[in-house]
C-alpha cells in the first residue's frame, strides 16, 4: 500500500469515496508526486478530524453522543494509563530513553492543546501520560493524562465561541472542586474516573449552549440529580464509581434529548 493510500485511511470511507481522488490529486500537484512528511501528517490529522467533526447540521442528540464518547475515551485512557503505570510491568531499557521520552511527553502535551479531534485528544492524552509513566513516577501519569485531555477537549469544545476555552476550563475545575460530586468516588482512581465523565458532560453542556452561565447552570442541575441518587450508595469499589460516572453521562444524554437546549447556530 503506497504511503498516500495509508494516510487516506484516516478519513472515513464515505469521505474517501467522495473527495479522496480530488484530495490526492491536489496533494500530488503541490508536491510533484513526492509527499513530504508535513503533507502526510497534515492529511492524517485532517482525516482524524473529519471522523469526529461536529457539523452545524448535527442534532443536539448527536452532540451528546459525542460527549458520551469523550467521557468513555477519557475514562478508558485514564484507566489504561493508571494501570500501566502502577503495574509490575518493567522495561530495562527505559532509562536510556529518558531524554527522548521526556521530549515526547512535552511535545504530546503541547500538541494535545491544539487537537480538535476526539481520537487525536485521546491518543495524545494516552501518549503523554504513558511517556511520563515510563519514568517510574506513575503518580504524575494520571494528572498529566487529565491535563492533556482537558487541554485538548476544551480547545475542541470551545472552538469559535466567545465563551472560549479558559472560561470552560475554569467552570470545569470549579465544578469538580466544589460541586456536589466533588467528594464522591472512593480513592484517587475512582474519583478521577468520575471526574473524567463529568468533565465530558460539562464540556458538552457548555458546548450546547454558548452562554457559559447557562451551560454551567444546566450542568450543576444535572450534577445534583445523580449526586442525590449516589449519596446513599456505598462506593468502596472504584469500578462502582466508574459505573456512577457512566450513569451520570447516560442520564445527561437522556436529559439532553428531553430538554430543548439551543444548539449554537453558526449559519
Amino acid at each position: 500500500m503506497s504511503s498516500y493510500r495509508l494516510v487516506m485511511r484516516a478519513f472515513p470511507a464515505e469521505y474517501r469515496q467522495e473527495h479522496g481522488a480530488e484530495l490526492v490529486d491536489t496533494a500530488n500537484a503541490l508536491t510533484d508526486n513526492r509527499w513530504s512528511a508535513r503533507q502526510s501528517l497534515s492529511l492524517f490529522n485532517v482525516g482524524l478530524r473529519t471522523r469526529t467533526r461536529i457539523e452545524s447540521g448535527d442534532t443536539v442528540q448527536r452532540t451528546w453522543i459525542q460527549g458520551a464518547m469523550l467521557g468513555l475515551l477519557l475514562m478508558l485512557t485514564t484507566h489504561t494509563t493508571y494501570v500501566w503505570s502502577y503495574g509490575s510491568w518493567d522495561w530495562g531499557g527505559r532509562y536510556a530513553l529518558e531524554p527522548l521520552l521526556s521530549a515526547l511527553s512535552v511535545i504530546l502535551l503541547i500538541r494535545s492543546t491544539s487537537s480538535r479531534s476526539i481520537a487525536g485528544v485521546a491518543l495524545l492524552q494516552l501518549g503523554a501520560a504513558l511517556s511520563v509513566g515510563f519514568f517510574a513516577i506513575p503518580f504524575l501519569a494520571a494528572p498529566v493524562s487529565l491535563l492533556a485531555g482537558l487541554g485538548g477537549l476544551s480547545r475542541r469544545w470551545g472552538d469559535g465561541r466567545p465563551a472560549g476555552s479558559p472560561t470552560m476550563v475554569a467552570i470545569v475545575i470549579l465544578a469538580l472542586s466544589f460541586g456536589p460530586l466533588a467528594d464522591l468516588g472512593d480513592g484517587f482512581l475512582g474519583g478521577f474516573v468520575l471526574q473524567c465523565g463529568l468533565l465530558a458532560l460539562g464540556l458538552t453542556l457548555v458546548r450546547l449552549d454558548p452562554r457559559p452561565l447557562i451551560g454551567a447552570g444546566a450542568w450543576f442541575a444535572l450534577e445534583l440529580l445523580p449526586g442525590a441518587l449516589m449519596a446513599g450508595i456505598d462506593s468502596d469499589e472504584s469500578m462502582s464509581t466508574a459505573a456512577y460516572a457512566a450513569i451520570a453521562v447516560a442520564l445527561a444524554a437522556f436529559a439532553a434529548s428531553a430538554i430543548s437546549i439551543r444548539h449554537p447556530q453558526r449559519r
Binding site: 484530495l23 490526492v24 491536489t26 503533507q39 492529511l43 485532517v46
Partner: peptide, 10 residues
C-alpha cells in the same frame, strides 16, 4: 497543504 485546505473547506 492539501490536508489543511480540505479540512478548512469542509
Amino acid at each position: 497543504t492539501a490536508g489543511t485546505l480540505y479540512g478548512a473547506l469542509d
